[in-house]
Design a protein around this nucleic acid. Structure first.
Lengths: 156, 156
DNA sequence: ATATTAATTGGACTTAATGCAAATAAAGTA
DNA sequence: TACTTTATTTGCATTAAGTCCAATTAATAT
């Protein structure tokens, strides 16, 4: 089996990735991961729970929370920093940052110049800090809410 | 009145700063602002509410939320990006970033090389975005939770 | 001093997330 | 395959964070 075969390399599919990080391969985990990958973008636990229960592949809300916690702490999905409030998750293979609109609160991906993490140097308050990630949140107005671009729009 | 007098410049005290941004000067706003400045650090609404009601200067929980919203959207205090979950506020005069420990969740300030916002360029997904702020969250282990520094510490 | 309008308040309510104990299912072993 | 062990899932109760509302109070303008 090589890259030209239809099958994915074992390290690329979710089942082996779960095994690699020492998590059991379970239905709920596969469903959540696949959904996230399929729909793309940034989603809260309740958003995903709703979508999963819309189809016939229901699963408990608590499990969605559990799974998201497990997958994100194992690094299989990303917990997007988008400010205080509920947590948003995404299945992305490349490290990136976020732009959050102050008006409509939509989240946009912003590519990371370096493409790996940490991509920014920290001038830390002392020795002993071990940084493994640097995530940037850009804030402002998105094109749809920017009065310069979309005149007539009322920015609350 | 000049800088050598005991009094602060009018633009430096909270009362005039409130007026400048078009907010009324009220007891609750002054109390919250002063407390935040006095104790320093990063605090949630409920934390501040608790402290305010510990003394005899009580005020309603809803007001603490209202005041924090007003002050932060007016730019008089800063809403610290520290990841999903409850909101943390601080009264700081210089723009800076944050390090959040993955284990104990403590928040540390990380100076910003530029010192004002936005301090980073975003490679935005299209035209029409107006960025006014870029805040970085560094994650990892703080000295107290770093096993390299504090052997014997169990990182959950 | 009065009128106007903003801010505060308490309490109910919503939303996001966690805790727990019982039931279930995955993976290792014989 | 059957069995055993232990992780995971589940439903429900609970906590935590924040918002909403209509009535009251207080700040500013006149």
């Amino acid at each position: 089996m090589d890259a030209t075969s239809g099958k994915q390399l074992s390290s690329d599919n979710i089942e082996s990735r779960l095994r690699v990080v020492g998590l059991r391969v379970t239905g709920p985990r596969i469903r959540v991961f696949n959904l996230l990958k399929q729909i793309g973008g940034h989603h809260s636990a309740d958003d995903l729970s709703l979508r999963l229960n819309a189809g016939k592949d229901g699963m408990s809300r608590a499990s969605v929370f559990n799974v998201l916690n497990d997958l994100s702490s194992a690094g299989l999905i990303m917990l997007s920093d988008a400010g205080p409030g509920r947590a948003f998750y995404e299945a992305s293979d490349t490290w990136h940052h976020h732009f959050v609109c102050r008006n409509c609160h939509e989240i946009f991906d912003v590519p990371c110049a370096i493409g790996r993490k940490p991509c920014l140097e920290a001038d830390l308050p002392g020795p002993g800090f071990a940084v493994d990630e640097a995530q940037v949140i850009f804030r402002g107005l998105c094109p749809a809410c920017n009065p310069e671009i979309a005149p007539g729009v009322v920015v609350a």
